[in-house]
Design a protein around this nucleic acid. Structure first.
Lengths: 222, 222
DNA sequence: ACCTGAACACCGTTCAAGT
DNA sequence: ACCTGAACACCGTTCAAGT
């Protein structure tokens, strides 16, 4: 170990699972998921990639840990309010957190070894519904619809070619010739009458659908 | 080129984009998405990986093509029936196709260069709604909720640790100690009272949620 | 106990060379 | 026009060796 490396080693904090997960999340947030490699992560932490394996079983285990950190950032459904408000706030929190960590979206519901924050989160959601008088069956229904919608909507939204108003025109441009040829009249109509209007943002659809679903659950529950 | 290689080359059909996409889909269906590499795909087609690049710009372009093949397998919303039945059948077809091609789920709505089958599909869905008297705005709402739910539910379902009745007990086993400790009472209740019951299948939730959403759309539309 | 260097078995992709 | 071999710049992970 050269003098310079020794100095660097001294300056940096000791490695730990926590620090690794935080750095990995930062890398995925800023660089995108496919840029997250053990080697680059090691670099960022001033360490060889192989050192990570002292604190993390393998990359899969690291992803499990990252996902659980993301879960811990989601607000639990608040107590002291009706179930509808609680579910609403929690849904919005999930979407906010996933917007911060877009790479996590496909991973959230797909880890076969859920971490403690994941379990606590889902337990709290079920608890909120059961506490409001939902049967086990109805709580399962509500849970399934809400999570399906939340993750599905966010998935579509995050990967949509047009997320900000300006993007629509740009992307649509490449498909526009085909639109103009009249091949896809209803898509063309949607693009012109709606998606290309000033102030349009696909994200605004989220709460419309959320409320429609909450209405339906309320009706089924009554 | 040895005599054996020459014979093999003669026996195999000429390479083409079609044949490559079909083989790639087969590999992803059977081996899982992470096993799909250009080199393995070349092997399967009796060709060097580099030959694929004569028919496909790169792996990303190949994925675009694969996703569009999957889109082409989805039934378009049938004409001659009310919009509700049309949307219902189409939703069920999407889920069926995604069950055949689980790797495609996260990719379907995320390609920034949608292929012709993708565009035709979405155009037909919008057309079905517009033809039934939906306003552009209401069609956008319906579309967004339905697709969000369909893709989100299927994503959760496909990656769930327990998909067949038997799996539940197996997976739950590893978390069971924590359940028994009373740390997650509502999850434990759900597992015992519902998920571990004979005949339970998470997939059965799909149509419940679908109908709840269709009810909501119908009500908003009236 | 933790970190490293070298190595292994992989990737996607390019490019010049073959037919 | 299509296919190949060699090469480049990467991966995740193991393992013996260092401290």
């Amino acid at each position: 170990m050269g003098a310079q490396a020794k100095r660097a080693a001294k300056r940096r904090a000791a490695l730990s699972r926590e620090r690794i997960l935080r750095a990995a999340i930062g890398l995925a947030d800023r660089g995108g998921f496919e840029l997250l490699s053990m080697r680059k992560l090691g670099d960022k932490l001033g360490v060889e990639a192989m050192s990570l394996y002292n604190h993390v079983r393998n990359k899969e285990d690291m992803l499990d840990g990252m996902v659980d950190v993301v879960f811990s950032e989601i607000d639990l459904p608040p107590g002291g309010v009706d179930w509808r408000s609680a579910m609403r706030q929690r849904a919005i929190s999930v979407r906010q957190v996933l917007t911060r960590h877009p790479w996590a979206n496909g991973l959230m519901e797909s880890r076969t070894t859920p971490g403690p924050a994941n379990l606590r989160h889902h337990d709290a959601v079920l608890g909120s519904l059961r506490g409001a008088g939902f049967s086990v069956e109805m709580a399962a229904h509500a849970y399934s619809i809400l999570d399906g919608y939340i993750y599905g909507f966010t998935l579509t939204e995050l990967t949509l070619p047009f997320r900000k108003p300006g993007d629509v025109a740009k992307v649509a441009g490449s498909i526009m010739e085909r639109f103009r040829a009249g091949e896809y009249p209803h898509l063309a109509e949607m693009a012109v009458d709606r998606a290309m209007q000033p102030g349009y943002a696909y994200g605004d659809e989220f709460e419309y659908g959320l409320d429609l679903i909450l209405d339906g659950i309320q009706r089924a529950q009554a």
